[in-house]
Computed example of a mutant assay.
Amino acid sequence: MTLVRWNPWTEIDALQRQFDRMFDTTTSSFPVALRDLNNAVKFPAAELTQADEALHLKLEVPGMEPNDLDIEVTENMVSIRGERKEESQTEENGKTHSEFHYGQFHRVIPLPSRIENTNVTAEYKDGILHLTLPKTTAEKNKVVKIKLDEATA
């Protein structure tokens, strides 16, 4: 039987190599994940509600001017493009802190009902864009007939 002398440094070196491999695999995909997170932040939140006469769409686009938004409406979808240009600067105790955020976004929202895209109204207030999308006459009067089987009744 051979006697092997234990060297704690070989164990530490093996552990170091494992950590290096682990961080090499996570950091190689990290910039892609960070880029995706950055795009998610630029994506405006939306809320679509449906009434009898119209659809109501609210989009959260704070810090933007109305002329920074490009809104296109078809009978079955709404497309919104914009570009954020936001800067903030604060001064405290003789130190200036400045931040800026720039970026473009594009969001397409499919609509559950056909609308009259020529009669859409829009209002922009306090960073919230409100769109009122009136339904077409055919959609307003749409009646769906349900047939019940006698076995299930």
Rank of each mutant, 00 (worst) to 15 (best):
N7T: 08
T10E: 15
T10G: 10
E11G: 15
L15D: 15
Q16D: 13
Q16N: 08
R17E: 15
R17M: 14
F19D: 12
F19K: 11
D20F: 10
R21V: 02
M22T: 14
F23A: 07
F23Y: 15
T25Q: 15
T25P: 06
T26S: 13
T26Y: 03
S29V: 11
F30Y: 06
V32I: 04
A33Q: 10
A33D: 01
R35Q: 10
R35C: 00
D36R: 10
L37E: 04
N38P: 00
N39Q: 12
V41T: 05
K42I: 07
K42L: 14
F43A: 11
P44R: 08
A45I: 04
A46V: 12
L48G: 07
T49H: 10
T49D: 12
D52P: 08
E53H: 06
E53V: 09
L55C: 11
L57C: 02
K58I: 01
K58W: 04
L59N: 00
L59T: 02
P62V: 06
P62E: 07
M64F: 03
E65V: 01
P66A: 06
N67S: 09
D68T: 08
L69M: 13
E72W: 00
V73T: 12
E75K: 13
E75T: 15
N76C: 04
M77R: 13
I80G: 00
G82I: 00
E83V: 09
E83F: 11
E86Y: 13
E87I: 02
E87L: 04
Q89W: 12
Q89K: 15
Q89G: 13
N93A: 14
N93T: 05
N93W: 10
K95T: 09
H97A: 12
H97M: 08
S98I: 08
E99P: 01
F100D: 04
H101Y: 09
Y102W: 09
G103R: 00
Q104C: 03
Q104Y: 04
Q104P: 06
F105A: 00
F105T: 01
R107T: 02
R107H: 02
P110Q: 02
P110H: 03
P110L: 01
L111C: 07
P112V: 02
S113E: 05
R114P: 07
I115W: 09
I115Y: 03
I115T: 11
E116Q: 13
E116M: 05
N117I: 01
N117D: 14
N119G: 05
N119C: 05
A122L: 05
A122W: 03
Y124M: 11
D126I: 12
G127N: 13
I128D: 09
L129H: 01
L129R: 00
H130G: 02
H130P: 01
H130E: 06
H130N: 06
L131Q: 02
T132C: 05
L133Q: 06
K135T: 05
T137R: 14
A138R: 14
A138F: 10
E139Q: 15
E139A: 15
E139I: 10
K142E: 11
K142A: 11
K142T: 03
K145Q: 12
K145V: 14
